[in-house]
Measured scan of single mutants.
Amino acid sequence: DTINITLPDGKTLTLTVTPEFTVKELAEEIARRLGLSPEDIKDTHNGKTLDPSLTLAEYGITPGSTITLEIK
């Protein structure tokens, strides 16, 4: 299953994830792909900052969802 990550420059990154991924694991994968530190990444969905300890499923993030990435 894939989700879309909207980057600060407007580009989109597509990642393969499972509903059990935590937001922290997602940030780590994004950081790895972009050459950043996971601590520099802030993920938001529907205007809410995502708690790193919760899973994508707990936020109702499903395949095809879009998450907005902010760099701290």
Rank of each mutant, 00 (worst) to 15 (best):
E25P: 01
T6K: 15
N4V: 08
P19D: 06
T55M: 04
T18L: 05
Y59L: 15
E20K: 09
N46W: 14
F21A: 07
E29M: 10
D51F: 03
D43W: 15
F21N: 06
I30C: 06
T16Y: 12
L56I: 07
G64Q: 03
T6G: 07
D51G: 03
R33D: 01
T16G: 07
E29F: 14
P63H: 08
L34Y: 06
T22F: 01
Y59E: 05
L56P: 00
T2N: 07
V17A: 02
I3M: 03
T49Y: 13
R33P: 00
L7Q: 02
D40M: 13
T18S: 08
E20M: 12
G60D: 04
T2W: 14
P38A: 11
V17T: 04
L69P: 01
L36G: 06
L26F: 09
S65P: 00
K48S: 10
D1R: 06
G35A: 05
G60N: 04
E20P: 02
P19R: 07
E25Q: 14
P52A: 13
V23G: 02
P52Y: 14
T18D: 05
K11G: 11
S53P: 02
H45N: 09
G10R: 03
E29Q: 07
E25D: 14
E58H: 11
R32F: 09
I61C: 06
T18M: 05
I41K: 02
T49N: 08
S65G: 05
T55R: 06
T22W: 01
I30S: 00
N46C: 14
F21P: 00
T12D: 02
L36D: 01
L56W: 02
R32N: 06
V17F: 12
E29N: 04
E70M: 08
S37P: 12
E20T: 13
D9N: 13
D40S: 13
I61T: 01
E28S: 07
Y59Q: 14
F21T: 15
G10T: 02
R32A: 07
D51P: 06
T66E: 07
L54C: 11
T16N: 11
E70K: 07
K24C: 08
A27N: 15
T12W: 09
P19A: 08
N4D: 07
F21E: 07
T66K: 05
I71W: 10
E70F: 07
L34T: 10
P8H: 08
E29H: 09
T6D: 07
T14D: 02
G64R: 01
D43R: 13
D40T: 12
A57L: 13
S37C: 14
P63D: 10
T12Q: 08
L50F: 10
P52M: 14
D43F: 15
I41Y: 07
A27E: 05
R32K: 09
T22R: 03
T6F: 12
R33T: 07
T6N: 14
P19S: 06
D43C: 15
P19N: 05
I41M: 07
G47C: 13
A57N: 06
L54M: 15
K24N: 05
G10N: 05
N4H: 12
T12V: 11
L56M: 03
G47M: 10
P8E: 07
T44A: 13
I67Q: 01
R33L: 12
T16D: 07
T14Y: 08
T6V: 15
T2H: 10
T55N: 03
L54F: 07
T49K: 13
V17Q: 00
D9C: 15
D40L: 13
L13T: 03
G60R: 01
V23D: 00
T62V: 12
E20V: 08
L54W: 10
L15H: 00
I41C: 12
I30Y: 02
H45C: 14
R32T: 06
A57Q: 10
T68C: 14
K42W: 15
I5W: 01
S37T: 11
G64C: 03
E58F: 09
L15G: 00
N4M: 09
P8D: 06
G60C: 06
P8C: 13
T14M: 09
D9G: 13
P8Q: 09
P19H: 05
N46R: 06
S65E: 05
E20G: 07
E70H: 13
I3W: 01
T14L: 08
K24A: 11
I30A: 02
G47D: 07
V17H: 03
T68P: 04
D9R: 04
P52N: 11
I3L: 08
K48A: 11
V23N: 01
T62F: 14
L15T: 01
T44S: 13
L15W: 03
A31E: 03
T16F: 12
K72W: 14
T22S: 04
T22L: 04
D9P: 02
G35P: 01
D43M: 15
S37K: 13
H45M: 14
D40V: 12
E20A: 11
S53L: 10
L15K: 00
T6M: 14
E20D: 12
G64H: 03
E29V: 10
L36I: 14
L26I: 03
E39V: 15
E20N: 11
D43S: 15
I41W: 09
I41T: 02
T2M: 08
R33H: 11
T66V: 08
S37M: 10
I61L: 06
T2E: 07
T2D: 05
L15A: 01
N46G: 09
A27D: 04
L36M: 11
L54P: 03
G35Y: 05
A57E: 09
E25G: 04
L26D: 00
E25N: 09
E58M: 05
I30M: 05
P38M: 12
T18R: 08
S65D: 10
K24L: 10
R32E: 04
G10D: 03
N4L: 09
F21I: 09
I3F: 03
N46V: 07
N4I: 09
H45R: 11
V23P: 00
F21D: 04
E25L: 06
K42R: 12
A31Q: 05
L7T: 07
I61G: 01
K72M: 13
P19L: 08
A57F: 12
V23Y: 06
S37F: 10
L26W: 02
I30W: 01
D43P: 15
F21M: 15
T6A: 14
K42G: 13
L56R: 00
G60W: 03
T16S: 12
T6L: 15
P63A: 10
L36V: 14
E39R: 13
T2Y: 12
G64Y: 02
P63S: 09
L7G: 03
V17W: 15
L34D: 00
T12G: 04
T44H: 11
A27G: 10
L26M: 07
T22G: 03
T68K: 14
E25M: 14
G35W: 04
I67V: 09
D1T: 14
P63Y: 04
V17M: 07
G35R: 05
P8W: 10
K48R: 11
Y59F: 09
I67S: 00
I30V: 10
E28I: 11
T12C: 08
T44E: 08
T44C: 15
R33I: 12
L50V: 09
E20W: 12
V23Q: 00
I71H: 06
L26N: 00
T66C: 13
T49Q: 10
T6E: 13
L7A: 04
T66G: 02
P63G: 08
E70A: 09
D51W: 05
D1M: 15
T66P: 01
N46E: 08
L69K: 00
K24Q: 10
G60T: 02
E39F: 15
G60F: 04
L34C: 07
E70G: 09
L56D: 00
L15C: 04
L50R: 03
D43H: 15
V23I: 11
A57W: 11
